[in-house]
Design a protein around this nucleic acid. Structure first.
Length: 243
DNA sequence: GCATTAAATTGGC
DNA sequence: GCCAATTTAATGC
């Protein structure tokens, strides 16, 4: 895999919302990146560890999660190509949650040392990464509202619409069918409901002709009713073009 | 890993 | 007290 395609999604995401000079882009392109392939459902970094590098998702899907003493896991976020889910480890040395792959994935590891050199040399890049991190926080806030306040079918509908919108930033389109590689148990862990209930609402949404979640994909069957159910307002994603 | 059901619980009205 | 949403427990693919 050549360097351009390794960085294409990241650059597309950053440039959508931040102004970068040719020199900024060149500096990002010259980052040393170790590309590695990862099996599905395998830890990348775990709670308590002190990583010395951050991980760019190049292909595949990752999640962040946290598990209680009692063994209950909460899925905190879903990550797609072009994102750096553990950028925070650059400044918060010790991991406070787990990062793992959902499916076989291609990952790019970038050392903290080279990221610090880059951000110190290129303030625009530092700003862009800061903005990216703040958007990440906004997505977390929405996730909390989702899990804490919406009825279960709306929780699933909302996550589906958000993921499609985020995928569209790098893919350029919002298709009716796209990857959604979570098992029903994982959907339950993301939505804060039991697997039985996850199964029930998936079936209900399918029978109602709104979405069909199966075999690692979602198919949107009725855009209007899905939007109505999810009450999805993309303002929190802050994708307004760079000034 | 997914699907279904019966019984119990919870919170709102 | 009723109703809807959801959990718990159990079972069969």
């Amino acid at each position: 895999m050549d360097r351009d395609s390794v960085l294409a999604s990241l650059l597309r995401r950053l440039e959508t919302v931040s102004k970068l000079d040719p020199a900024d882009i060149a500096a990002i392109r010259s980052l040393p990146i170790a590309v590695r392939h990862w099996e599905g459902a395998r830890a990348i970094v775990s709670d308590g560890e002190r990583p010395s590098e951050s991980c760019l998702v190049i292909e595949g899907f990752c999640i962040r999660s946290k598990t209680t003493e009692a063994g209950q896991r909460q899925i905190l976020s879903i990550h797609i190509p072009g994102e750096i889910p553990d950028l925070q480890s650059l400044h918060l040395r010790r991991m406070d949650h787990d990062l793992l792959t959902l499916v076989p994935s291609t990952l790019g590891f970038i050392s903290h040392a080279s990221l610090l050199t880059l951000t110190h040399a290129r303030p625009n890049v530092a700003d862009a990464l800061w903005r990216d991190t703040l958007i990440d926080a906004a997505i977390f806030r929405e996730w909390i509202v989702n899990v804490g306040q919406r009825p279960a079918p709306a929780r699933l509908a909302h996550i589906v619409l958000e993921l499609r919108r985020r995928l569209a930033v790098t893919r350029g389109a919002e298709p009716a069918t796209f990857e959604f590689p979570l098992t029903q148990e994982q959907i339950g862990e993301a939505l804060g409901i039991t697997p039985v209930h996850a199964n029930r609402i998936i079936r209900q949404l399918r029978e109602d002709g709104i979405i069909d979640v199966s075999r690692g994909y979602v198919q949107v069957l009725d855009e209007t009713r899905l939007a109505d159910l999810a009450q999805f307002d993309d303002r929190y994603l802050h994708q307004d073009p760079a000034a």
